[in-house]
Nucleic acid binder design. Sequence first.
RNA 1: CGAGGCGUGGCGCAGUCCGGUAGCGCAUCUGCUUUGGGAGCAGAGGGUCGUCGGUUCAAAUCCGGCCGCCUCGACCA
Length: 491
Amino acid sequence: MADVITSREKDYAQWYLDIVQHAKLADYSAVRGCMVIRPNGCALWENMQRALDDMFRETGHENAYFPLFIPQSFLAREAEHVEGFAKECAVVTHSRLMENPSGDGLLPDPDSKLEENLIVRPTSETIIWDAYRNWIQSWRDLPILVNQWANVVRWEMRTRLFLRTMEFLWQEGHTAHETKEEAIEETRRMLEVYATFAEEWMAMPVIRGVKTASERFAGAVDTYCIEAMMQDGKALQAGTSHFLGQNFAKAFDCQFQNRENRLEYVWATSWGVSTRLIGALIMTHSDDRGLILPPRLAPTQVVIVPIFRKDEERTVVLEAADRVEEALRAAGVRVKVDARETHRPGWKFNEYEVQGVPVRLAIGPRDVKKGNVEMARRDQPGKEIVSQEGLPDRIGAVLEDIQQGLFDRALAMREASTRRVDDYEAFKDTLDRHGGFVLAHWDGTPETEARIKQETKATIRCIPMDEDKETGKDMLTGNPSERRVLFARAY
RNA sequence: CGAGGCGUGGCGCAGUCCGGUAGCGCAUCUGCUUUGGGAGCAGAGGGUCGUCGGUUCAAAUCCGGCCGCCUCGACCA
């Protein structure tokens, strides 16, 4: 037994980090807070990207690309936006290095000081709206439905692999609309795209909701979000979609002539998900043995491990393995044969379990003789002997079953950890004893929200959209409330 | 930024209290035997102990400065 993954029970945070490293998803780098995304992690992200990108196209969006650098002055244009992001910007001040006259190393050349500092984008609203001003004259130029895949930098004080890194990969959609209603509709549409992706691809159930004012994106009128529950009962914001009103259009003087022949500011949305989703995926499904990936996103869905000793066995076993691989590939399964002779079967079994491959097939001389394979599912203990006959159909069904099973398990876990509480003492007790989600009444004021946060570390994750209205009394102040909101301690 | 911890072959660690010139496990390399759950045996290579300075005949070990990283917290996706 070589590397051991810390159990969730013993230390959940360490377990998470162990999974990331043992599954070879990412590594620390020479730069504090920045990670190396390794091939396994990259392949996973690429599968997420592909699925999302297809969904964006289906909803009428196009990809574009805007600069990494933003003139410092741009950030200052939208007051709330500055306040939200100014504290975490990487600033470029010089364009050249020179040898340090005092001897060792390099220094920024003072002569190369920039006229205006550039910041590395923490998000791209400003640079994009500066461009949109030139694209939009008339209502006929609208809507603009653009997405970009990019990296962004936020100088975080504290980082965690995938969940919060100083540089991260994401997509950011930026749309421009003629009317408020259309922009709100777009905001909600994209939230639904995210929710669909989370649930159908990641097998991760989410709560759709609206953020309170204090949790809103800097510069937004409304922030919609999807919130997921991790296995430790903490909430993770998995995606956000913002209705920006006319805030950025006003800041960047982006007006159009409307159908009534009057000048009007453009209505905007922006929405994004990031590599944080990989962290969400890990903390939703994986177990103490390693990563568990939902089949729809797994870079490798089925791995075939051939088993043999003698040369003549190798020939027939590899031949059978290749044949099975071929049949599965023809059926659209992402499959590979691991025929390396540098590692033994037992080693490979463990390796693929740690890396979360959904299905493992083993083929040895016994199986060849009987026309069988040995099948093991990552989501369940044990293994099963199945016939090579009709295997592609069987595997297809198993992959779907795993996908559904992971979702069902996560949903059941979330429901078991979601409680309705009406009394503040019970609220605190519930959080301390169980964690999880708590649906409770809130009087709608930032003061109450802040006090609860300070006293319990729980925040209002969102005002759920699916939750029925139900009048009640704020558990802290006793003031009237129209509906329950979702509280949790969060990542 | 606050608290805690850590820096010793590629990785994980012991050695530090009681200074005497570096050790263990995994990994790597070679050979033989193995291969249906992380192989066994034999042999081999690889580090001057984060960094700078001090004390000493002698420093991984004692003293001081600096740097870096991790975890937890405040802030955030």
